[in-house]
Design a protein around this nucleic acid. Sequence first.
DNA 1: TAAGATAAGAGGGACAT
DNA 2: ATGTCAGTCTTATCTTA
Length: 298
Amino acid sequence: MAQQLKERCPRCGKSNLVTDTETGELFCAKCGFVIDEKISDSGPERMFTDSTTNKSRTGDRTSLTRHDQGLSTIINPINKDSSGNPLSASMKTSLKRLRVWDSRSCTKDSTDRNLQQALNELLKMKEKLSLSDSIGEKASYIYRKALEKKLVRGRSISSLIAASLYAACRESGTPRTLNEISSLGNIRRKELSTCYRLLLRELELTMPVVDSVSCIARIASNAKLSEKTKRCAVKILKQAQQEKILAGKDPMGMAASALYLASIKTGQDMTQKDIAQASGVTEVTIRNRCKNLKKLDI
DNA sequence: TAAGATAAGAGGGACAT
DNA sequence: ATGTCAGTCTTATCTTA
């Protein structure tokens, strides 16, 4: 039923890749189906037999970031365990439930293959951006919705995945810019933002406006600014918020210029160039935002 | 050298046609 | 569906202190 191969798993590097002869599915017996975030998983969900040739499994923990939510695509219809013994009654019921899930999510058509490929890409990108698992889950949820609405047709998988990831970041208040995601994902920024807006429109998502205060921490750590400067910049932004000059402006730009002004005030004296590099906005934008901020009594 | 100013261009939302 | 408009941000270049 299962056949061991020589290739190494791209994820964990172990040469435990196994192909299932019934479905032709390739998975890593060490770390999971295609790519697994839990490499050293040896919990009770694993049910290896002693035989080295028969490494069937009941499946890993469920996750939206797997095309079949982590459930194995090959749930054997025979109610026996891997060593051929009949299953307990409770195991039978849960297996029955699993099969329902399986048949729903694993339709083995183009949609499924698309999802599988997309989620692989999602995991790679998530790693590159060092984002949390929960954001990955969110992104894959969004992508599933997009797939349901047939938004993928005519668009590249990677750009839509990147857009889902960006949306997940926005939703959870994790400051990542379109530029960062597009450059790390090798996607044109324009394409990414188009897809993102498409998602918002079609899925009727509403995103919270990026809080410019939360951008401060990122820029400040990039530019190695002091706590004092950070606090000062937050104060400036709070004031700007009250004067309603934040609306419609790029929050990264606002945070950058607030930090710039704050660094002057605290004597840390950063140049516009430094801040621009640390924040990813241009010096001109910083200057323009500074013009607005300087009207405040700072 | 850093900061400020200016101009041209891109991309997208709102709105009208 | 297409075009126009106001506004934003970016890039490039020049000037100023």
